[in-house]
Simulated assay, not measured.
Amino acid sequence: MKDKKNGPSFPWHLAIAGVLSLVVLLGFYWVGANKFSTEEWNEFGDFIAGAAGVIITTFTFLALLYTIHIQSTELALSRNELSLTRDELALNRGEIAKSGKALRDQVETIKVQNFERTLFESLNFLSKLSEQFEWRSPVEDAPRTGVSAFFAMYHQIGHPSVALGALGVEDGDQIGNHAPLGEALDRLRTQLAPYYRTLYNIYRYLDESEFADEVYYNRIIRAQIPDHALAILFYNSLTPRGLRFQKYIEKYAILDNLPPELLFNPHHRAVLDNLPTPNATEAIGEA
Rank of each mutant, 00 (worst) to 15 (best):
V271H: 08
S83K: 14
S37P: 06
I232A: 06
A223D: 13
H159L: 06
R189N: 13
T85G: 05
L181V: 02
N114D: 13
L185K: 07
A17R: 12
N265T: 04
G45L: 11
Q191K: 11
Y205M: 14
P240N: 12
L164Y: 03
T60I: 09
P143I: 00
S72N: 15
N114W: 07
R244D: 09
E88T: 07
R104M: 12
Y66V: 07
A17S: 11
T109C: 01
V31N: 07
I48N: 05
A33H: 07
K111M: 10
A270P: 03
T277C: 14
S99Y: 02
K128C: 03
G285F: 06
I70Y: 02
K98W: 00
F234T: 00
S78P: 00
N42F: 06
P260E: 12
Q71L: 13
G7R: 05
N6V: 03
F211E: 11
I96Q: 09
T109F: 07
E121K: 10
D87T: 05
R241E: 15
P8Y: 08
E108N: 13
D213V: 01
G45V: 00
V112P: 01
Q191T: 07
D273H: 10
S122I: 05
V112L: 15
S72K: 11
A63N: 10
G18T: 13
E121F: 15
P276E: 10
I284H: 02
E261G: 04
A17G: 05
Y196E: 06
L167V: 01
A49H: 03
I220Q: 04
L181H: 02
A287S: 09
G94L: 09
I249Y: 00
V147L: 12
L89N: 14
Y252V: 01
T281H: 02
R104A: 15
N257R: 11
F59I: 08
E39F: 09
L77D: 12
N218R: 05
P194L: 12
N201S: 15
F61Y: 13
Y216K: 13
N218G: 15
T85M: 11
F47H: 04
F125S: 12
E210S: 13
G32S: 12
E40H: 04
E214R: 12
L126N: 05
H155Y: 14
Q71D: 13
A283K: 09
L233T: 11
N80L: 10
L22S: 13
F151D: 06
L272A: 11
T198E: 12
I232D: 02
M1Q: 07
N279M: 13
G94Y: 01
E183P: 02
R244T: 11
A179L: 15
E40N: 08
I110N: 03
R136Q: 15
A152R: 09
T67D: 09
Y235V: 11
E131A: 13
H268A: 04
P143Y: 02
S127M: 10
S127C: 04
N92P: 00
Q113C: 03
A142D: 14
D173S: 07
L65F: 14
A33D: 09
N201T: 11
R222Y: 01
